[in-house]
Design a protein around this nucleic acid. Structure first.
Lengths: 130, 130
DNA sequence: ATAGGGCTTCCAGTAGCTGGAGGGTCAAGG
DNA sequence: CCTTGACCCTCCAGCTACTGGAAGCCCTAT
């Protein structure tokens, strides 16, 4: 399979797939013309990567998850450790964003949003502590 | 005021302050020895920037907000437009993260996390659609 | 005079791609 | 046989918003 087809099937841009090869996440074969030749196992890994990335795992997490996936003797505890660490980060991020959203949505609501210059948003950014 | 003091007062790293000068957000004066010399107005802008950034505005948003702040004839509508655009992005991000969190927390809960290799997290990453 | 801390500039690196230049390859149509 | 267009290749640069570090000047205190 050439990269274009793989890109379509995996729903990843060809650029990204090449990048994943660059950083050693996959190692497709090469045809005599220099074109990458993807096996089923490569496709499989790319699908895995796509889903892991969609869940927000970092590339390094993905690398580790992929290694565990390949390792038939893995301990599920190792997988879970990565996932729950990531989960905690996400919880923190959500909390941060919610705090920001609350502040911001209050400000937006109190701003007239007309032609006059008075603006509680600017006032907040100017005066109040973070 | 030298950069060290400003950094302390504004709670921004000196590196960041220099960076903000680089990209034209502030333009402190210079002493004869080449040291940056910050006026009150620079401090004020840095505080504004710190708070804007803490609310997650991009640097370009900050640049625009700062310009509006400086402009006594601004329309509050312009400020509000920036803020509510940003707010929408945050809402979207929160929604995305919550979806991820729900998936992930379910997976983490169903994974035994022991010495055995069976792992629903890997199973999900392997098999199911994004 | 020297030691320390603070200041300067400039260069490189972070994460995870993405865009583009410049060029080779392949299959189909004329 | 030639051309056209759609592929593919590599390499380099750029994105965000900093951050770290090297090399070196400046200032103050001892």
């Amino acid at each position: 399979m050439n990269i274009g087809e793989v890109a379509k099937k995996s729903n990843l841009p060809a650029k990204t797939i090449r990048y994943y090869e660059d950083i050693g996440l996959i190692t497709p074969l090469r045809d005599t013309n220099g074109y990458r030749s993807f096996r089923e196992s490569d496709m499989h890994k790319l699908a895995f990567l796509g889903r892991s990335r969609a869940l927000g795992f970092t590339i390094e997490d993905c690398r580790n998850l992929l290694a565990l996936w390949d390792d038939q003797d893995r301990a599920s505890a190792d997988v879970r450790a990565i996932a729950s660490e990531h989960l905690e980060q996400i919880e923190r991020k959500i909390a941060d964003l919610i705090a920001i959203r609350d502040t911001l949505s209050h400000l937006v609501q109190t701003c007239a949003g007309d032609g006059r210059p008075d603006c509680p948003i600017l006032a907040k950014l100017e005066k109040f502590p973070t």
